[in-house]
Simulated assay, not measured.
Amino acid sequence: MNDTNPSPFKAAVIRQQGGPFRIEAIRHGDLRHDEVLVKIVATGMCHTDMVARDQVYPVPHPIVLGHEGAGTVDAVGADVRKVAPGDHVVLTFLPCGRCRACQEGAPASCENFNAYNFSGQRPDGSHALCDSGGHDLNDRFFGQSSFGAYAIANERNVIKVRKDAPLELLGPLGCGIQTGAGAVLNALKVEAGSSFAAFGAGAVGLSAVMAAVVTGATTIVAIDVVPSRLELARTLGATHVIDSRNENPVEVIRGITGTGVDYSLECTGRADVARSAVEALRPRGVCGIVGASKPGTNLEVDINDVMQKCKVIRGIVEGDSVPDQFIPRLVELYMQGRFPFDKLVRFYSFDEINEAAEDSEKGGTIKPIIRITE
């Protein structure tokens, strides 16, 4: 990268499989015509960051991760009209904008999603970041790489939000919270009076529970193995909770509903849990799959159960959201007190980023947010 800004800034770099995150002084290059430089206030930490750190997904290293950034616009490229310096923004996934899915208004189903979000480079092979020695760093993670004081994003994945909302809290709306809430509101379209079960009560599953409350669902079940998460699920609106270490969730759900739930959401990435999520459906029920699994993981289901009961299994990425519309909608719900996702959050300083990762993986923290300061 020859067009390097001479001013260094702090970022967390992964240089080997499994980490750790190393805070280094790095540099960014000049903005392209359609790019936006964002000064990061805070960034959520998501399971997908861990998946990339550990190369469960084959993401190239060394790399700057982070894909739930929130901050203020510092500068914009020559052709950017969507935002201006000083705007408050949330960063989300980057769609190509040109494939059939994008053109049909379904950017979360972008045919080029992996190339734009996991390749570690721009589509032309260039990088936006380099280390102190001038060596290119893999970046562009979800079009942002926001574990740093600055992020270079594209106009397409920068979402303007209202300035009176607490900016340091909003980053997770760009991925994890959007995924759970969007699965309920956009993809499954859970109706008032219906029944819903979230398999996994982490950030995604609990966001789905809160969204189910917004829809007016009357039976809302949360399944997990961590008692504190199940207790929190109750406070967020779950009508029933199941500790799957001690009870068979399919049997309990059938006991609650008679025939099964209208909708289920698999949030863990585990094939055995996904099977249970399908089995727990009533006839004509719909199961959404959002959990990230190791490539090659297979889901085994009883074909006759699916066929004879006319069940539907569908994959969901990023809540099937159009982020320019959906993220401001979630902000409005939060500001109205109807979507209290702040109850999932614990803040960490930038130098505590490895602690945040460890706490998240052990289940002690549901949604870490890393405060980024110079």
Rank of each mutant, 00 (worst) to 15 (best):
N354T: 06
A84T: 11
E318V: 03
R254P: 08
L232Q: 09
V301C: 06
L330W: 07
V213E: 06
R338C: 10
A222Q: 08
G77M: 07
D305Q: 13
P6M: 10
K39T: 03
T373K: 09
L232C: 11
K311W: 03
D324L: 05
A84M: 12
V250H: 07
V13L: 13
I23G: 09
R338L: 14
E104S: 15
F118K: 02
V221F: 01
S293P: 09
V36A: 02
P368F: 12
E355Q: 15
R162G: 11
V312N: 10
K10W: 01
A75V: 05
V51K: 06
D359I: 06
L129P: 14
G237S: 05
F118M: 12
Q16V: 11
A183L: 05
P85M: 06
A292E: 03
G202N: 10
L330E: 08
V261H: 08
P227K: 10
I223S: 00
V184D: 07
D54N: 12
L265W: 03
V56C: 02
E24K: 06
V278K: 01
G182R: 02
G69H: 05
G29W: 01
A101M: 15
P172K: 04
E191P: 02
G180D: 08
D351N: 12
P8W: 11
A11R: 05
Q144E: 13
E24L: 08
P227Q: 05
A108R: 08
V221S: 03
P249N: 14
L169I: 01
A165N: 04
N2T: 15
H67Q: 02
K163M: 05
Q178M: 14
M210E: 07
L230P: 08
C110L: 15
L167M: 03
Q144N: 10
F141H: 04
C267V: 10
A165C: 02
E332Q: 15
A165T: 00
G19Y: 13
P368V: 06
G176L: 14
Y263I: 05
S360H: 09
D54P: 01
V51I: 10
R229Q: 15
A165M: 05
S264H: 06
G133T: 04
V345I: 15
C46V: 10
E358V: 11
G182C: 02
P249C: 03
I14T: 09
P227V: 06
V56A: 04
V80S: 13
L91T: 07
R371G: 08
I40H: 00
D124T: 07
I372S: 04
V252H: 13
R32S: 04
A201M: 11
F339V: 01
V312S: 06
N5H: 13
P20A: 14
R229G: 13
V214P: 00
V13Y: 12
A153T: 04
V158H: 07
I313Q: 01
A115H: 13
I316K: 04
V250I: 09
S321P: 02
L265R: 03
R346P: 10
V56Q: 00
A101F: 13
G200K: 09
V301Y: 02
G202S: 05
G364E: 13
R15N: 15
L344Q: 07
T259Y: 12
N304D: 07
Q16P: 09
R245K: 12
R338H: 14
A108K: 03
L188H: 00
